[in-house]
Amino acid sequence: MIRGSIAAIVTPTNAAGEVDERRLARLIDLHLHAGSDALLLPGPRVTAPLSTSMPTAA
């Protein structure tokens, strides 16, 4: 049984719509160091429609 926080992570993509592996690794490290007990990674096909209307950081 998982107890504690489960962080849902939006899969970061680059301008070409590909998974940005460097940014994904940074997000994973951030949540692991913050004490998350589990991570939920829905994948780019699920998060792409949600993230296309959101501004991205350069």
Results as ranks from 00 to 15, higher is better:
N14A: 07
L40E: 13
D20Y: 02
L24R: 04
I9C: 04
A7N: 13
E18T: 00
A7I: 11
T52R: 12
G35R: 06
P42T: 05
L27M: 11
S53V: 13
T47H: 00
L24N: 01
T11N: 03
S5Y: 11
G4C: 05
A58R: 14
L32V: 11
L40F: 10
R23Y: 01
V19D: 03
R26G: 08
P42E: 10
P44G: 09
G35V: 08
L39R: 09
E21A: 04
T56I: 07
G4A: 04
N14F: 02
D37K: 12
T47R: 02
P49W: 09
T13R: 01
L50K: 06
G35F: 12
G35M: 12
A38N: 06
T11K: 02
G4S: 05
L41I: 08
L32C: 13
E18K: 00
L41P: 01
P12E: 03
S36M: 09
R23H: 06
L27S: 10
A58I: 09
S36P: 05
V19R: 01
P12Y: 02
V10H: 07
R23E: 02
T11L: 04
T52M: 11
R22S: 15
E18V: 00
P55V: 10
S36T: 14
G4H: 06
G4V: 05
R26A: 15
A48M: 12
I9R: 07
L27C: 09
P49V: 02
A48Y: 05
A34E: 12
M54R: 15
L30D: 08
P55L: 12
P44R: 14
A25K: 07
A48T: 10
T52Q: 11
A8V: 11
